[in-house]
Write a protein that binds this DNA or RNA. Structure first.
Length: 317
DNA sequence: AAGATTTGACCTCC
DNA sequence: GGAGGTCAAATCTT
């Protein structure tokens, strides 16, 4: 990879995406303000249009963060790839231009045989690893396709693929394995990207661009991040990782808002963020570590400190 | 009946 | 050859 060139590309693209998200969020704020001005008991066509518009904007904000995550993820993995090549010989020889799915390996067709077992072992740049106290409820629909007893492992590993693989060709998969009994600890590894339109997340369908050949993302949950982020001020992978985690958190919040059953909830402010089902869902569906769960509000305030994260003030303040 | 899960077989990689 | 990942028929659930 041409790191110098691609790095600046990642950064500028990521910033572009965030700025775009910022703009959409500002529009949402305006909408929110307007809605507040004349909303006492309003209903009818106008509010329906407003809600639709708000949904659209939320989706755009989500996508913006998704694309940013993609860029950060791509960059991060490029770096990891580079390091791993230095450390060990990697015989899997993953190539970004090649399909990572089994179909690519099916070209040496045997004709009569079906596709059973004809696959290429996954080697993707987009993996996502999480430990959690319970199996992660990430908002996506997964279908279990296998279970395997792993050597020296107490518990079997479960294999899941996106429910929309067949109807939408979504290639996202995940592996889940209990790695500890007391206290229970589950490791979940996400592979690949969701290209489906999840019914719960109708806007999770991503844009493609020249810098990122694939789209992200499995919206698993985020890691605790309490510190301020030196956004894009450094190119170190740890900073990028932290940044990514922060954005995932924000994105998750946006997603939670969008999937809130009552559309009017979009326009709830404090209560919505800290007391409503949205917040509970965040905790329940999250792999946030316990100390973080106890302090979501602090995180939210921290996030809002950043200008680029201002979009989420709309939902938080 | 349709969709999800189970499970043994099969495949690739090391 | 063994380990791990995936397939798909059988079975279960809704």
């Amino acid at each position: 990879m041409e790191n110098l060139g691609s790095e600046s590309c990642y950064h500028s693209k990521a910033i572009e995406e965030l700025v775009r998200g910022h703009e959409f969020a500002n529009q949402l704020r305006e909408l929110f303000n307007k809605s507040n001005e004349g909303s006492c008991g309003v209903g009818g066509d106008n509010s329906a249009v407003t809600v639709t518009f708000a949904e659209d904007l939320l989706g755009k904000v989500q996508r913006s963060f998704t694309n940013t995550l993609l860029l950060l993820n791509e960059k991060n993995n490029d770096e990891c790839e580079e390091v791993s090549q230095l450390q060990v010989r990697d015989s899997c020889s993953w190539k970004p231009t090649k399909s990572e799915d089994s179909e690519e390996s099916c070209k040496s067709t045997s004709g009569i045989r079906d596709r059973r077992g004809r696959y290429k072992r996954r080697r993707t740049s987009q993996t996502w690893e999480r430990d959690s106290e319970a199996p992660i409820e990430d908002g996506h629909q997964w279908r279990k396709y296998g279970q395997k007893q792993i050597l020296n492992a107490k518990h079997p590993r479960n294999y899941y693929r996106c429910t929309h693989k067949s109807d939408q060709g979504c290639l996202a998969t995940k592996q889940e394995q209990k790695i500890q009994d007391e206290p229970p600890l589950f490791k979940t590894i996400y592979y690949g990207t969701h290209t489906c339109r999840n019914l719960l997340n109708p806007e999770i369908l991503l844009d493609y661009d020249d810098c990122a050949s694939e789209c992200l993302i499995s919206f698993d949950n985020s890691l605790p991040t309490k510190q301020n982020l030196p956004l894009f001020s450094s190119s170190s992978s740890s900073i990028v990782k932290e940044c990514k985690e922060e954005i995932i958190q924000d994105h998750h919040l946006a997603h939670q808002c969008q999937s809130t059953p009552s559309q009017e909830d979009y326009f709830l402010s404090h209560e919505f963020t800290f007391d409503s089902s949205c917040c509970r869902n965040l905790t329940l569906s999250s792999t946030l570590e316990s100390d973080h769960n106890a302090d979501i509000s602090e995180f939210l305030c921290d996030s809002a400190e950043f200008d680029l994260f201002e979009p989420f003030e709309i939902l938080m303040s």
